[in-house]
């Protein structure tokens, strides 16, 4: 009981906002980047390498006073396909849902092909997600595949 209490305190509760739970421990900073939280002026709490019953270790992000569009949150499915989104109002859980890997990805991933036009002119990248399990992105322009391990976030 006491252990559980301490664990909950590892990242403090927020009054209002969004909690993103079950992020793989290594992907917390990527998720922060993808959601553009680096520039946020709201209070953000995060933890990584936390204990998780389900996955061994995990990361968590808590953003005060922010409620995201599903489209925006689904972007982090690329690095955290099993993330849980929890909407908090007045310390209460209002909604709990899973992220979904989107069909199309735009703007925030770089194409792996150095000779792709998107890496040579100022062009917004666009990808089709070919395989939602493995997460292979096909560039709309050069048609090359950017695999999950090669993803660089813009």
């Amino acid at each position: 009981m006491e252990n559980k209490k301490r664990k909950e305190l590892q990242v403090s509760a927020i009054q209002n906002g969004t909690v993103i739970d079950h992020i793989p421990a290594g992907s917390v900073f990527q998720a922060i980047r993808i959601l553009n939280l680096e520039r946020s002026t709201e209070q953000i709490l995060f933890g990584t390498n936390l204990e998780s019953k389900k996955y061994g270790t995990k990361g968590i992000i808590k953003v005060s006073n922010r409620y995201f569009e599903a489209e925006e949150l689904n972007k982090i499915a690329l690095v955290a396909p099993r993330a849980t989104i929890i909407v908090i109002k007045d310390f209460q859980v209002i909604e709990k849902k899973r992220v979904e890997v989107p069909e199309k990805i735009s703007k925030f991933v770089k194409c792996v092909n150095p000779n792709c036009i998107t890496n040579n002119e100022s062009i917004i990248t666009k990808f089709t997600v070919l395989d939602k399990d493995v997460i292979n992105l096909q560039c709309k322009y050069c048609e090359k595949i950017t695999a999950k391990d090669n993803m660089v976030f813009i």
Partner: peptide
């Protein structure tokens, strides 16, 4: 010489593009 240049051109161009080789 760059891959994907023709697709991009077709997005911005008001006239049709025929790709004669993109990289």
């Amino acid at each position: 010489p760059q891959d994907g240049s023709a697709r991009y051109a077709s997005e911005v161009s008001p006239v049709p593009i025929i790709n004669a080789g993109d990289g």
